[in-house]
Amino acid sequence: MAVIEVDGLTKRFDGLTVVDHVSFTVEQGSVVGFLGPNGAGKTTTLRMLLGLVTPSEGTAMINGCRYADLVDPLHVVGAALESSLAYPGRSARNHLRIAALASGAAPQRADEALGLVDLTGAADRRVGQFSLGMRQRLALATALLCDPEILILDEPANGLDPEGVHWLRALLRHLAEEGRTVLVSSHILAEVAQTVDSVVILDRGRLVTESSLADLTIRGTLVVQVRTPRAAELAELLAVQCATATVTGADRVEITGATSEQIGTLAAEHAIPIFETTTEAADLEDIFLRLTTNTTRTEVTP
């Protein structure tokens, strides 16, 4: 069952299309990475999903209804958005007490939530004195306050040190094991790759791909490096065949989306000499980069 359904979601700010007809679904109990470079429209999409930004077109539903129509929404969806920071003069505990009161959670949940994110020791410190990492933890505590089934986390790893990222991964894994649905955004695939089941990738406001992590790995695994004196010519021929070819040096082409056999045959048909081919497996980060920088990478530059 899809708990999050985004359909044709579009947002234009002053004539600029920030999110362009984005559609995807998130199944109950799945952990989905919402990926894309900075400025891809991830935050705007999440804010539309949460009723904070009004879509120009399209719909975003949670459990079949708009966020604004949810009864006690924080009990259904917990969200940690980048800027949902607390008033700097307030203590972490008071920030959560306010959130608990507003959402109808029991007052003791404030302390329990602080415990969940290892902030108990800083409960009475003013949020203004918190490091970025501590603020991220506090935002997570706020999201977890009402024990929601769905979690929407926007760049939760931002500002965390390596130890913090490790901690976050463990927390996400723990939340997933509890059967919660998690939609977590990031501009770095590696941050979430160990935790997510599938990915939704956005680039310049458009949906690039929606697939399981396994499919994504298979699809882009092979990278073929070819050494040929007619690099540009080969790249152009490959581009016609819908492979992605980038001229990386005077006599080098890097190709994805075609096997070395296909490349060799194509080269032979056009009498292009090939000195060397090497096939290597790309890691997920490369696939992600390739997908999100698609338009620039397909340009065949001599």
Binding site: L52, Y67, L81, S84, L85, A86, A99
Partner: peptide, 18 residues
């Protein structure tokens, strides 16, 4: 409007979308 100065409006409206 103090809620906009410190972005606390986000949490306020997440808890109460109306």
């Amino acid at each position: 409007n103090g809620e906009f100065r410190h972005s606390t409006a986000t949490l306020t409206y997440l808890a109460t979308p109306r």
